[in-house]
């Protein structure tokens, strides 16, 4: 494999996957800590009709209309879940299930209509993503990273995610303390004058944006995996908030890299001329990480708590 091949084929796919995993992995912490993990699942299903409508309106797979449609659908899903919960007096889980399944069904029906008129959009691309199709033809080697002309040809999935990553991490850094307090004790946050509700909706908005930006590149399944698995893995290893954020980011990136290698290169080592789905493999790797932490985690793993009877020292959550 030459540098040129790597930069044209593997680099853009890998960088896209790493960015998606990093953003989702870190944002997922707040969902997991707030016990709203399935919000990610709900959103990534519910945006489907918005994406398809955006595609139909624009007539092509350009980013802005599809993003717009998806954001609209995510907001609609949030509002509908709240309405169904309030007017129907239904438990939140079931309300979520009702809204996202119906919206996904609508998306599937619309998708089928759209696919009948064009070959550009189909169920596969939405469910599994098309990581393998993200190519950077302008690259001729690693030096292209510093070549303005080549950089302008970067695939738009990658640039979208890069911008989103910058904004997300800038906001996380800026509101580090506020987000921490609202996550662990919304009541205390309100008493301190921090608008906990606004932070909650802000979080949901950014999860939607991350889901939507990652969707096209890596598929909905990897988004859900990355929103939950790295954060849950970190939760089994540490009690400290800062470490939790760092570790989840690390596990996200690790899943992306190992998954990509396992899907793309490992079959080749055994002499096969095919590759496996890389986004599926990344989800599997994140599950393997979680499984290892679940069994062998130093403090909260099953081995530590059950087999060796070293009862976990009761320790208050450190904020």
């Amino acid at each position: 494999m030459t540098w040129m091949e790597f930069m044209q084929v593997d680099f853009p796919a890998l960088a896209t996957a790493i960015l998606a995993a990093l953003i989702c992995g870190v944002l997922g912490n707040f969902l997991v800590l707030r016990r709203q993990s399935l919000m990610g699942d709900a959103i990534s299903h519910a945006v489907l009709p918005g994406i398809v409508v955006g595609f139909i309106v624009a007539g092509s797979r350009s980013t802005l209309p599809m993003m717009g449609g998806a954001v609209g659908a995510a907001v609609l899903a949030g509002v509908l879940i709240e309405l169904v919960r309030r007017f129907g007096q239904i438990e939140p889980g079931a309300a979520m299930g009702v809204v996202f399944t119906v919206m996904f069904a609508l998306g599937v029906v619309l998708l089928e209509q759209a696919a009948a008129h064009s070959v550009d959009l189909d169920a596969d691309c939405v469910l599994y993503g098309q990581l393998e199709d993200i190519l950077w033809f302008e690259a001729s080697g690693w030096w292209s990273l510093f070549d303005r002309e080549a950089l302008s040809g970067l695939p738009r999935e990658l640039t979208t995610l890069a911008v989103l990553a910058l904004v997300t991490f800038a906001l996380l850094g800026l509101f580090y303390k506020e987000i921490k307090i609202t996550t662990f004790d919304a009541g205390l946050a309100s008493a301190l004058g921090i608008p906990a509700q606004a932070f909650h909706y802000g979080l949901i908005l950014f999860v939607s944006l991350a889901a939507i930006a990652s969707f096209e590149a890596v598929g909905s399944i990897l988004v859900i995996a990355m929103l939950i698995c790295p954060a849950a893995t970190a939760r089994l290893i540490t009690d400290r908030y800062g470490a939790q954020l760092m570790l989840s980011g690390l596990f996200g990136v690790g899943s992306a890299v190992f998954g990509y290698v396992a899907a793309g290169f490992v079959p080749g080592w055994f002499g096969a001329d095919w590759a496996l789905s890389s986004s599926g493999m990344m989800a599997v790797v994140s599950g393997v990480f979680f499984g290892i932490a679940l069994v062998a985690g130093p403090r909260y793993g099953v081995l530590a708590t059950r087999v060796f009877r070293a009862a976990p020292v009761p320790r208050p959550e450190t904020i």
Partner: peptide
């Protein structure tokens, strides 16, 4: 969420 995404990912692979 973990079971859902990991099993489905495995299925896709």
């Amino acid at each position: 969420g973990i079971v859902l995404s990991v099993f489905y990912g495995l299925g896709v692979v």
